[in-house]
């Protein structure tokens, strides 16, 4: 599963979880840190992105700071309707991520909208379409240290 990346790729994946220098040639600067050329850094990042080891590469915007609203939602979906409800929920462009989870509340998704009213409105629409309750879990406080996994 992970044989197609080497130690240099792992070092790069770890380094990319920290901030990229805001430099005209940021990949050259990264290369100096990792003892790689600019060309090698770019080639490796491209490959990691193309093979799916990196889900994305670029600026990480704070959704709330962009003026939008953001909310974790959960539903209790009957097993025999799970597929249909998944399609109904996913059809909304406001639904960014959606995960099946092993709990009575078995569908968890994140909504992103332009405004707080948009969250409520989308939740009400999903409730009307599915006949199921949408529980809203907006973040009240974030204990944010960093998003980091050891590659």
């Amino acid at each position: 599963m992970t044989q197609d990346i080497d130690t240099t790729d792992r070092a790069l994946l770890n380094r990319l979880q920290d901030d990229l220098p805001l430099d005209r040639r940021p990949f050259a600067a990264l290369g100096q840190e990792l003892d790689l050329t600019e060309v090698e850094v770019l080639a490796r990042i491209s490959r990691l992105r193309d093979t799916g080891y990196l889900t994305r590469f670029g600026p990480f915007y704070d959704a709330a700071a962009l003026g939008g609203a953001f909310c974790l939602c959960a539903m209790e979906v009957p097993e025999d309707r799970y597929e249909t409800v998944t399609e109904q929920v996913n059809a909304h462009s406001e639904v960014a991520h959606n995960y099946a989870r092993d709990h009575r509340l078995n569908m968890w998704f994140v909504m992103a909208t332009e405004s707080a009213e948009g969250i409520q409105a989308t939740a009400r629409r999903i409730e009307a379409e599915t006949g199921l309750q949408v529980l809203l879990f907006p973040k009240e406080r974030e204990f944010f240290i960093g998003f980091r996994v050891a590659a």
Binding site: D19, R49, G52, Y61
Partner: peptide, 18 residues
């Protein structure tokens, strides 16, 4: 201003065996 948290990459946990 905190609009951009960082510039970088998001690793795929699943691909990394997590």
């Amino acid at each position: 201003r905190g609009v951009i948290r960082r510039i970088g990459g998001a690793p795929n946990h699943y691909k990394l065996g997590m």
